[in-house]
Design a protein around this nucleic acid. Structure first.
Length: 219
DNA sequence: GTGCTAACCTATTCAGGTC
DNA sequence: GACCTGAATAGGTTAGCAC
């Protein structure tokens, strides 16, 4: 089984998260009313219970799952025609096919969310590391500046005042802002330029989560 | 506009399998 | 027997169609 989507994925477009909610830009994907077939009507009822005697739940065979999985990889949605075809081929009720696809989509979505979490976490780690490096660099530069100014002031008979309140972040921003070309672009800005994330310098300092402006489509 | 129907969804239940 | 997984159910939303 491939709950981890390691085989051919129906890869969602990365620029949007809407695929979690909307597989085909409809409020409910695949909701297209089609004339119900005789077999499909009454699908809501449990076919296993129809004969009065309560049949026990049965696991699908590996062969059935294999075919269902292959079909799912081809198309995440299940159209009535395909449902009936699978139903005949696998000797399962159409309802069972529909339920399997529904559960499979749920599992797929969960996996996608887990994957997205990993990606975001990685991005966050990268940004955190870069911030740490920049802070260290700023401290070094401040120390150097202090020494130089101290030396100059000694000759003038005084010492400069370096505020302890001054934030590393503001200094960092100022330096980079005043001489952007010399500093070059940070990884984060490159990412932002590539349109993956929309980050401002302000975001930089307050970022607690990657501030990617991906649309969250309400369900 | 309203009612019906069939598709979808999430949350939950329950049974089979594994340790 | 506890825990996990997956098949199935319950209940809700949405959209197309007929009236």
């Amino acid at each position: 089984m491939d709950w981890h989507c390691t085989t051919k994925p129906f890869v969602p477009q990365p620029e949007t998260l809407s695929f979690f909610y909307n597989y085909n830009n409809n409020p409910y994907p695949g909701v297209e009313v089609k004339q119900a077939t005789l077999l499909e009507t009454g699908e809501r009822s449990n076919p296993a219970m129809d004969n009065g005697s309560k049949e026990k739940k049965k696991r699908l065979t590996s062969k059935q799952i294999e075919l269902l999985e292959r079909s799912f990889q081809e198309e995440i949605k299940l159209d009535p025609e395909r449902k009936m075809k699978l139903s005949r081929e696998l000797c399962l009720q159409p309802r069972q096919i529909a339920v399997w696809f529904q559960n499979r989509r749920t599992r797929w979505k969960t996996k996608q969310l887990e994957h997205l979490y990993d990606v975001l976490k990685h991005q966050y780690d990268v940004i955190s590391n870069e911030k740490q490096k920049l802070q260290e660099e700023v401290m070094k530069l401040k120390a150097m500046l202090g020494k130089e100014q101290g030396f100059g002031m000694q000759r003038l008979g005084g010492y400069p005042e370096i505020s302890g309140e001054e934030t590393v972040e503001s200094t960092s921003e100022g330096l980079r802002g005043s001489n952007n070309k010399a500093w070059g672009k940070s990884n984060i800005e490159q990412v932002a330029d590539e349109g993956l994330c929309s980050l401002s310098v302000e975001d930089y300092n307050t970022v607690s989560l990657p501030l990617c402006h991906w649309p969250i489509v309400p369900y």
